[in-house]
Design a protein around this nucleic acid. Structure first.
Lengths: 349, 349
DNA sequence: AGCAAGTGGGAATGCGCTTTCCAACTAATC
DNA sequence: GATTAGTTGGAAAGCGCATTCCCACTTGCT
């Protein structure tokens, strides 16, 4: 009933398990052609499938890459996951997926599970949280990961580093210039938009959101604009919807047309939806920009002004970077860059 | 350097490995409280993390669920994956992800990898292909999976069964009533739409697409409409775009406004985009319906008429179903149902 | 007091594979 | 033809853990 083993194959072929192992699963030494053929035939006739668990145990390398995301159904993460998948395939590994609720506690749990599975590398795609209430969990996460790295594990993190995790062998973070890009976006927007700005951000303390807000405000400041109001809400479509509902009420009686910066594209979509419900439209009643340039939203109208990020490439690079064992000082192969893309949603009314 | 082992913990605690194992990793027998505490402390101070590989080898259960999708970045699959993930977590398992190019050959490869890893269950989410050129690969896939099941593996498939795979222990397919739902959609559409119909489908031989086409045509026939033209293209946004481009040319000189049925929502979006480029709009110049009711597309305008499918629930159920070891005859807990949702994209011009 | 039943811990075996280390051979060199 | 180097297959020792026995012991009963 159970799958056949190497030993059975060896016996059928009339050789030792050692030999069978050598021919079946790549080894430096290659047995004679005749023997090899016999073994292969035996394996074939028995339907032998090597037990990766046993192999992993014997040679202490599992061929697994652990990926931690907030929500695999979110297009931001699924694009990233696609890149991780591509890199994994290229490196002949498989990816283990864990979705968390977005809290460091959940990430810690996932990291522990990956550590137990002895994943060759773990990739963390979700944003860090700097909220006070998460600091304990952040500490635990850092401790877990530090132990993981100390035991020879490799770790790749997208964006900001893990809070409280010192530089460690095998730990690499892939910087994403959220702040600079948001700054650039603000600069371009400030050049054409006269009215006031409003920022709709994720929860305070969500690193990615904070970076974007900070960058946007810096860009505004550099353009001589006064700092703007920031609305904090969920970093999701529904968060955007809520903020949009709130804004809609105010848009009605204000004479000036504001420019809204949403922390990411899906929030922007939520805002559009909310405004629409109130009979308001973009860009007529408000200009609107997002962030990420999610592929699935390109056909959305009005076309969203946003910042393009090579999501899949980010996933690829962070994975490859984590796996590569070059010295930590060496800079990443190529830096991640993004592009400000002004489209219809921020055109003059 | 390497992670510490159970043996080390046992030695530190001054007990045998057997005892340490019993206290650390749930066993029927629980050692005395004093001993247990000592072991736990030793484990803690050593930063012990059980090696899941070794555990898997020893008790021959890996706690892994293999998931095969065409493209994790596609919202259809990522929604499904989310459901699989939820079920996996509920059953205290982890999910191994494999994306294929959508061919049976790729799926076979992924299945083999999962079999090697001794995944407790494998879930296949992608549509089957009945194309002649895939029949050899389909055979191999069936053979691989049959062996996998024979060795005690469990298999869950979304929609249609694996071609050439006989009923086997541990093999369950979760039916998705694509055909009936498409039929229902056609019926409702035929009731209000006077003009001709056009179907934009995926490649001939892609089972899911074929089912939907068949159902739609049946619905049309039952409503007394003559069978309609079917355009075959890629089962993706770009496929829809291509078809839309093609249709745009013809819409110009035809007097009647057709109703287009796209095999899935993302194709429908592609069609809208293509028509738009030609100055045509939905529903004014053509009615349009999709399938799946992808969440990310709900804010799209015109709101898409479509068939809602509980994607996440499907992922959940197929996973749970595969894992459950009730007799194969027993019907699934609850059947998957969908809902026809007529919205703006098919309203009268 | 004497026995059975029960309990808590350890020794040993095995899960399926890789990988030294060895022994036996073959081929090459002087 | 003897010595050395080079090859090739096998024996055996793990990899880290679960688990089956087995033994020593405590408890409850007659």
């Amino acid at each position: 009933m159970a799958a056949s083993t190497l030993a059975e194959v060896a016996k059928l072929a009339g050789v030792s398990p050692a030999t069978a192992s050598r021919v079946l699963n790549g080894s430096a030494r290659t047995p004679g052609a005749g023997i090899a053929e016999r073994v292969r035939q035996a394996a074939e006739s028995l339907g032998y499938v090597a037990n990766a668990q046993a192999q992993a145990l014997a040679k202490s390398s599992t061929g697994l890459i652990g990926l931690i995301v907030h929500d695999i159904a979110d297009p931001y993460f699924s694009a990233l996951a696609q890149g991780v998948q591509v890199a994994a395939r290229q490196e002949r590994r498989m990816v283990l997926l864990a979705t968390t609720d977005g809290t460091p506690a959940g990430e810690k749990e996932a990291a522990a599970a990956f550590a137990a599975r002895r994943a060759d590398a773990i990739v963390i795609a979700g944003s860090r949280s700097t909220r006070a209430e998460d600091s304990a969990a952040n500490g635990e996460l850092a401790a877990e990961l530090e132990r993981y790295c100390r035991n020879g594990g490799r770790l790749g993190v997208v964006g900001q580093g893990i809070i409280g995790l010192p530089e460690t062998a095998g730990y690499r973070t892939l910087p994403v210039p959220n702040e600079d890009l948001a700054c650039g976006l603000a600069a371009e927007l400030a050049a054409t938009h006269e009215g006031p700005f409003v920022i709709v951000a994720g929860p305070d303390g969500l690193a990615t959101s904070d970076e974007r807000v900070r960058g946007f405000q810096r860009g505004l400041a550099e353009a001589g604009r006064e700092s703007t109001e920031v609305l904090h809400t969920a970093f999701s479509r529904n968060g955007g919807f809520d903020a949009g509902t709130q804004l809609a009420g105010r848009l009605a009686d204000r004479a000036t047309r504001p420019c809204i910066f949403a922390g990411n594209d899906v929030m922007a979509i939520g805002i559009v939806a909310a405004l629409r419900e109130h009979g308001l439209s973009v860009p007529e009643d408000a200009a609107l920009a997002g962030f990420d340039d999610i592929e699935w939203l390109r056909d959305f109208r009005p076309e969203l002004s946003t910042v393009g990020l090579p999501l899949e490439e980010i996933g690829r690079q962070v994975t490859l970077g984590a796996l590569a064992d070059r010295p930590a000082e060496e800079p990443a192969a190529t830096d991640i860059t993004g592009t400000v893309r002004l489209r219809r949603s921020t055109e003059g009314a």
